[in-house]
Nucleic acid binder design. Structure first.
Lengths: 208, 208
DNA sequence: TTGCATTTCAAATGCGCGTTTCAAAAGAGC
DNA sequence: GCTCTTTTGAAACGCGCATTTGAAATGCAA
């Protein structure tokens, strides 16, 4: 062991990685500092030394996770950009390649919001939603009021995050349901089609 | 004080009511037995006496909450029944009249499923989803495969529960957003229209 | 009235866990 | 080599909280 600067940094990273997984899987309260340090192969005092306290570690983890934003398709006709946005969202949820615990962490943060959530909303979520509103507006041919556009964006996002937030129920209703890349693509097809239909209906002005 | 059978029952009920609110608001771990007993005006030992332990109380609460199922419109054309189902779902989420903590409790249960969730899925959720599938099938004129029907039901449900699961984000994106009965009705309009459009698009066979 | 069963009460117990402490290890600068 | 700073290590502290305990209170039956 050589406690040099790079070694210290390595310890920090091991703690963040271990804590990210465990926090996402079990929530803030459930997780013990001992458990995190065990997996990170760090001493019990490392958390307090590097992050002040347990909450400081959590915030570092959340901030670190928030860095991997969904990459979106910025060019092309609105149908293509819609499809790209859906895949980006589902990619976060299904997390086939990425660190799979970010979406779960986000879900937990939504249930018990802290100040960290405000930052993430401002820095990441709002810009993304603004872009979605633009796409929806174009798809509707400019025939939607602001409120309707906003609600349509919610309907779109809802269909994606549903597979994260209600996975427990989905898995029980449909034991055969898979959550791999192939299924992700099929769901993306469905959500894109359903959303196009929904927007078309809204734009047509028909009310049920 | 008269520790008779009805008094004992009253204590049980006070504990369940108090615990329901507090569990829903703060989660299982956060809540202390002391806090529950304080609000229920019961002794600290009452929880262990009546429910064995804290977990036993939680399960009793969840079972009790699961009894208030969404009342659905069973007759009429599928458009009307769809609208009824949307309102029932949103009613659970917005909880304008009902015990408002059921939806929150359900959300928590979805994140950390216990055996209790299996029962609730079998007894309440699956029958409800079966009915939704029937409605969707009728709306599509029988032109949807089972898989597409199921996904459409998910898209429908997702739009409703989104207002529960992501309320923290919605409130931050839209500080003016209200969650009262009036807004609930407008959202029901939107979700019903959006869903009709989505189903129509799926039934038309068009793919993006 | 007097035992008996049920429920409530206040205090105590025990323990899990975040945090602190203080010493040891290991470079960095002189 | 020697001090100084940074990082790690093992053990201990202290607190919060679920749970237990044993007695008191209360109704019921004989």
């Amino acid at each position: 062991m050589s406690p040099t600067a790079t070694q210290s940094e390595a310890t920090r990273e091991r703690l963040i990685d271990a804590a990210g997984e465990i926090f996402a899987a079990n929530g803030f309260r459930q997780v013990t500092v001992r458990e995190i340090c065990d997996r990170a192969e760090a001493n019990i005092a490392a958390v307090n030394y590097h992050f002040g306290d347990k909450r400081g570690l959590y915030e570092a983890v959340f901030r670190h996770a928030a860095l991997c934003a969904p990459p979106t398709q910025l060019e092309g006709p609105p149908e293509v950009r819609l499809r790209g946005a859906v895949e980006a969202l589902l990619g976060c949820v299904f997390g086939v390649g990425r660190p799979t615990w970010y979406a779960r962490l986000m879900m937990r943060e939504m249930m018990e919001p802290t100040e960290t959530l405000d930052q993430v909303v401002d820095e990441r979520i709002r810009p993304f939603c603004d872009e979605l509103e633009t796409i929806v507006g174009e798809l509707a041919g400019g025939r939607l009021a602001d409120t309707d556009r906003r609600r349509a964006v919610r309907s779109l996002v809802a269909q994606c995050v549903y597979y994260q937030h209600c996975r427990a129920v989905i898995a029980r209703l449909d034991p055969d349901q898979r959550f791999d890349a192939d299924e992700q693509a099929r769901i993306a097809d469905h959500v894109a089609a359903f959303t196009l239909g929904g927007i078309a209906r809204l734009a047509s002005g028909a009310r049920p």
